[in-house]
Measured scan of single mutants.
Amino acid sequence: DWREIAKLAEEALKKQQPVTVNGQTFNDPNEIKKLLETAQKAI
């Protein structure tokens, strides 16, 4: 669910920690931002 992904990505950016989505881990803040943008577009 994109809403859940957006929430996870936002928290990861705030806490500056990696986030795992669908078994894929994102460590890079730039990648997390991209993930968040993608999720927000999909909602």
Rank of each mutant, 00 (worst) to 15 (best):
1 D>F: 09
2 W>G: 04
2 W>H: 07
2 W>Q: 05
2 W>D: 05
2 W>E: 04
2 W>K: 04
2 W>I: 06
2 W>R: 04
2 W>M: 07
3 R>T: 15
3 R>A: 14
3 R>H: 15
3 R>G: 15
3 R>V: 15
3 R>L: 15
3 R>F: 14
3 R>E: 15
4 E>S: 03
4 E>G: 03
4 E>H: 04
4 E>W: 03
4 E>F: 01
4 E>Q: 06
4 E>N: 06
4 E>A: 04
5 I>E: 02
5 I>T: 05
5 I>M: 06
5 I>Q: 03
6 A>L: 13
6 A>M: 13
6 A>P: 00
6 A>Q: 10
6 A>T: 08
7 K>W: 09
7 K>Y: 11
7 K>Q: 15
7 K>C: 08
7 K>D: 10
8 L>H: 06
8 L>I: 12
8 L>R: 10
8 L>S: 07
8 L>G: 04
8 L>A: 14
8 L>T: 07
8 L>W: 07
8 L>F: 05
9 A>E: 01
9 A>S: 05
9 A>M: 11
9 A>W: 05
9 A>L: 15
9 A>Q: 01
9 A>I: 15
10 E>K: 08
10 E>D: 10
10 E>P: 00
10 E>R: 05
10 E>W: 04
10 E>A: 07
10 E>G: 05
11 E>W: 00
11 E>K: 07
11 E>Q: 09
11 E>C: 08
11 E>N: 09
11 E>Y: 00
11 E>A: 09
12 A>N: 03
12 A>D: 02
12 A>V: 00
12 A>Q: 03
12 A>F: 02
13 L>D: 03
13 L>P: 01
13 L>V: 05
14 K>Q: 15
14 K>M: 12
14 K>I: 14
14 K>T: 14
14 K>Y: 05
14 K>E: 11
14 K>W: 02
15 K>Y: 07
15 K>W: 06
15 K>E: 12
15 K>N: 15
15 K>F: 08
15 K>S: 15
16 Q>N: 14
16 Q>M: 14
16 Q>W: 08
17 Q>C: 05
17 Q>I: 14
17 Q>N: 09
17 Q>T: 14
17 Q>L: 13
17 Q>F: 13
17 Q>R: 11
18 P>F: 04
18 P>T: 10
18 P>S: 10
19 V>R: 00
19 V>F: 02
19 V>T: 04
19 V>A: 07
19 V>W: 00
19 V>N: 01
19 V>S: 02
19 V>H: 01
20 T>F: 10
20 T>Y: 11
20 T>A: 07
20 T>D: 06
20 T>H: 09
20 T>S: 11
20 T>C: 08
20 T>V: 13
20 T>M: 10
21 V>T: 06
21 V>N: 02
21 V>W: 02
21 V>F: 04
21 V>Q: 02
21 V>M: 06
21 V>Y: 02
21 V>S: 03
21 V>A: 07
22 N>V: 05
22 N>F: 08
22 N>T: 04
22 N>I: 06
22 N>M: 13
23 G>Q: 05
23 G>A: 04
23 G>V: 00
23 G>F: 02
23 G>E: 07
23 G>L: 04
23 G>Y: 01
23 G>I: 00
24 Q>N: 11
24 Q>I: 15
24 Q>D: 09
24 Q>A: 06
24 Q>E: 14
24 Q>W: 02
25 T>N: 09
25 T>K: 10
25 T>W: 10
25 T>P: 06
25 T>G: 05
26 F>N: 03
26 F>M: 12
26 F>K: 04
26 F>G: 03
26 F>P: 03
26 F>D: 03
26 F>W: 09
26 F>Y: 14
26 F>I: 15
27 N>E: 14
27 N>P: 06
27 N>T: 09
27 N>D: 14
27 N>Q: 13
27 N>Y: 15
27 N>S: 13
27 N>M: 11
27 N>C: 04
28 D>R: 00
28 D>I: 00
28 D>L: 00
28 D>G: 07
28 D>S: 05
29 P>Q: 11
29 P>S: 09
29 P>F: 14
29 P>T: 11
29 P>N: 08
30 N>W: 12
30 N>I: 14
30 N>D: 13
30 N>T: 14
30 N>C: 13
30 N>S: 14
31 E>G: 05
31 E>S: 09
31 E>T: 09
31 E>F: 10
31 E>K: 05
32 I>W: 00
32 I>T: 03
32 I>E: 02
32 I>R: 00
32 I>A: 02
32 I>C: 01
32 I>P: 01
32 I>L: 09
33 K>Q: 14
33 K>F: 06
33 K>W: 04
34 K>V: 13
34 K>W: 05
34 K>S: 11
35 L>S: 01
35 L>Q: 02
35 L>I: 11
35 L>C: 03
35 L>N: 00
35 L>F: 01
35 L>W: 03
35 L>E: 01
35 L>V: 07
35 L>T: 02
35 L>P: 01
36 L>S: 03
36 L>R: 03
36 L>T: 01
36 L>H: 04
36 L>P: 01
36 L>F: 08
36 L>A: 05
37 E>A: 06
37 E>R: 03
37 E>N: 07
37 E>I: 06
37 E>F: 00
37 E>G: 04
37 E>P: 00
37 E>Y: 00
38 T>R: 14
38 T>P: 03
38 T>H: 13
38 T>M: 14
38 T>N: 12
38 T>G: 08
38 T>K: 12
38 T>I: 15
38 T>F: 12
39 A>W: 00
39 A>I: 11
39 A>T: 05
40 Q>L: 13
40 Q>N: 14
40 Q>I: 15
40 Q>D: 07
40 Q>M: 11
40 Q>E: 11
40 Q>P: 02
41 K>F: 00
41 K>R: 13
41 K>Q: 12
41 K>S: 12
41 K>W: 00
41 K>N: 14
41 K>V: 12
42 A>W: 04
42 A>K: 10
42 A>C: 11
42 A>V: 12
42 A>F: 05
42 A>Q: 14
42 A>D: 05
43 I>N: 06
43 I>V: 11
43 I>H: 05
43 I>L: 06
